[in-house]
Simulated assay, not measured.
Amino acid sequence: MAVAASLTACSTADSAAPERERLAGEAPSKAAPSTPERRPYTISFGGDVHFEGMLRPRLNNPRTALGPIAGVLRKADLAMVNLETAITTGGTPAPGKQFTFRAPSSALTALKAAGVDVVSMANNHGMDYMETGLADSLAAARKARFPVVGIGKDEAQAYKPYRKIVNGNRVSIIGATQVLDAEFIQAWTAAPGKGGLASAKNEARLIKEVRQARKNSDTVIVHLHWGTELQKCPNEAQLSLAPKLVRAGADVVVGGHAHILLGAGYLDNAYISYGMGNFVFYNSNPATTGRTGVLTLTINGRKVLKDSWTPATIQGGLPVPMTGAARTQAVADWKALRSCAGLSARR
């Protein structure tokens, strides 16, 4: 992965330099401060990840847990997935919930080893083990020094962007979920003084964060959990929210939840991916939920210069990149998905 300096570190260093000069009794330098030259960078996205069922034993060797897809993720300057599980070995399963996912902290080690730089936990499984699971997840992320968006000890932390400077580009990534079980909306949504998830149902709060990020970022990315399970085209909520986020200043909006791939392409000057599908996931059908891949965008500032799709099939819970004629056909199939999404192949 390319080395990327943190915005916080850069801003602290820049502001501290003149102060050091004054303390030393020297006149401030008249030379203009140097700024890194901005060059295009790549960011790769994978879909939904958990480590349940057949995948759990892979955490016995987290360095190789994600298998061959790690080679694709490591090539990008940044890589991101949706972590659809609580990081805990304790807590109480959410009452009445049919599927509850959790994984030990070695899941973060596995993701980091595979080249993943940041995850979103804003999804309908992020608090499957309720408040204890939330506290454990946050503690595990802190201990591992692994960036997580869309979840926090309070509203401010949950909506707070992950920030990195990549090839001179100030990148901000915000995570939120548009999908929450009705009975958990109140309990799971972060609020002032209350831990939880960043909710895209609170559109005003999410849009406020996007506008704020726009002020001091070159690229603003919103990662969403959204869509309708197994529905091949974006639902009304997705089609309504995407343009609002673009108008607020988002350059890229990427997400998933439907367990299948949905269309991706340009909406005005922004890039939208409505559905990344399953990625590292125990349940897959070769014809539908087992179709997956890595979306790689080449970006310079606000411009998405190129999109590239690396198709894969889920085998034994892991995404395995496709080759030959099957790969060519899978790329064509992926491009065809945008026909019902109202997106364009080019800016």
Rank of each mutant, 00 (worst) to 15 (best):
F101M: 12
G96R: 00
A113G: 08
T109G: 01
A86S: 15
P93R: 05
L108A: 11
A94L: 11
T85P: 11
T85C: 10
P93W: 07
S105Q: 14
G91E: 11
A94C: 11
K97D: 08
A94P: 05
P93F: 06
A113I: 03
A107I: 05
T88Y: 01
T100S: 13
A107K: 03
K97M: 04
G91Q: 10
G90Q: 09
G91T: 12
P93E: 04
A107V: 04
L108C: 06
P93S: 03
V81M: 08
A114N: 02
L111F: 06
T89P: 01
T109P: 00
Q98A: 15
S106C: 03
K112W: 03
G96F: 09
Q98K: 15
S105G: 11
T85E: 12
T88R: 04
A110M: 06
A113C: 02
P93V: 05
E84C: 04
K112G: 11
T92Y: 04
L83K: 08
E84T: 04
A107F: 05
P95K: 13
T89K: 09
A107Q: 06
P104K: 11
N82A: 14
P95W: 00
S106W: 00
F99I: 13
K97I: 10
A110S: 03
P95C: 02
R102P: 13
I87V: 15
I87Q: 05
A113M: 03
S105C: 00
T88D: 07
K97W: 07
L111Y: 09
P95T: 13
A107W: 03
A110W: 01
F99P: 00
T92H: 10
F99D: 13
G91W: 04
T85G: 10
S106D: 13
Q98N: 11
T88A: 05
T109K: 14
T85H: 06
T100K: 01
G91F: 09
T88K: 07
G91Y: 09
K112L: 01
T85I: 10
R102I: 04
A107S: 14
G90F: 01
K97E: 12
L83Q: 10
A94H: 05
N82F: 00
T88P: 12
A114G: 13
T89M: 13
F101H: 15
A113E: 13
T89E: 15
Q98C: 00
A110P: 01
A114R: 10
S106Q: 14
T92N: 11
K97Q: 08
G90I: 02
N82W: 00
P104R: 12
A114M: 04
F101S: 10
A110R: 08
A110E: 01
N82M: 12
T100R: 02
L83A: 07
T92Q: 14
Q98T: 13
P104I: 04
A113P: 01
F99L: 14
G96N: 05
K112I: 00
F101L: 15
L83F: 14
G96T: 07
T89V: 15
T85R: 03
G90Y: 02
A114T: 04
P104N: 09
